[in-house]
């Protein structure tokens, strides 16, 4: 999977986990300011990444990501 495909997949998974339309989520989307989710959504997201991308991201590593791009970087480093 190349970087572009990974970005698209993670945007899709963020949208599913946070109950948003895919069009609302970009690489610049901020978890704190734009999505305002609780840890429950982040747990869902980490689980989806594990299921779909076979990459195990620690919740604490995912939780410090400010934007979707930061999360893509973290997942890419794990793959």
């Amino acid at each position: 999977m190349d970087r572009k495909e990974l970005e698209a997949k993670i945007i899709e998974l963020v949208a599913i986990s946070y109950g948003k339309d895919e069009g609302e989520v970009t690489l610049e989307t901020s978890f704190k300011n734009d999505l305002q989710g609780a840890s429950v959504q982040m747990v869902a997201l980490v689980s989806e990444i594990e299921n779909e991308l076979d990459a195990m991201i620690a919740l604490q590593d995912a939780s410090v990501c400010e934007t979707v791009k930061d999360l893509v970087d973290a997942v890419e480093a794990e793959m």
């Binding site: 869902a44 689980s47 594990e50 299921n51 076979d54 195990m56």
Partner: peptide
Amino acid sequence: TRLKEKALARR
């Protein structure tokens, strides 16, 4: 439930 077989077996 959140996790699928492969991820679950690993966890």
